[in-house]
């Protein structure tokens, strides 16, 4: 039940007093309430959970994490599996 999924906000509108958005989940579109991410803009990604955006995803943090993974796999490639501890 805590499995929020990332989606891309494609459109923002008001409905019944709520801040709503149309969200693209890789080609499947659903409506979500955006009241908890008032700063969100169309084109941004957020974690959607039971019809609510609960967190905006940070592009910068995502890039940094992926860079870090890349560094780890580069080290593994150089040393090969089972090599001595690279760094702690």
């Amino acid at each position: 039940m805590c499995l929020g999924v990332p989606g891309k906000i494609v459109e923002i509108y008001e409905q019944g007093g709520l801040h709503m958005g149309r969200v693209d989940f890789g080609g499947v579109f659903r409506e979500a309430c955006l009241d908890y991410v008032p700063e969100a803009k169309a084109g941004e990604y957020c974690v959607i959970h039971v019809g609510f955006a609960i967190s905006l995803l940070s592009e910068k943090e995502a890039m940094e994490t992926l860079d870090l993974f890349k560094q780890i796999s580069d080290i593994e490639e150089e040393l090969g599996p089972g090599a001595a501890p690279a760094s702690v």
Binding site: V5, P6, K8, G26, Y45, L57, A62, L66, F69, K70, I72, S73, I75, E76, E77, P81, A86
Partner: peptide
């Protein structure tokens, strides 16, 4: 985006190696 790149099996293996 934000899903596929976090399911890369080779990357998972290298983090496990780490």
């Amino acid at each position: 985006k934000y899903v596929d790149e976090y399911r890369d099996a080779a990357q998972v293996r290298s983090v496990i190696e780490e």
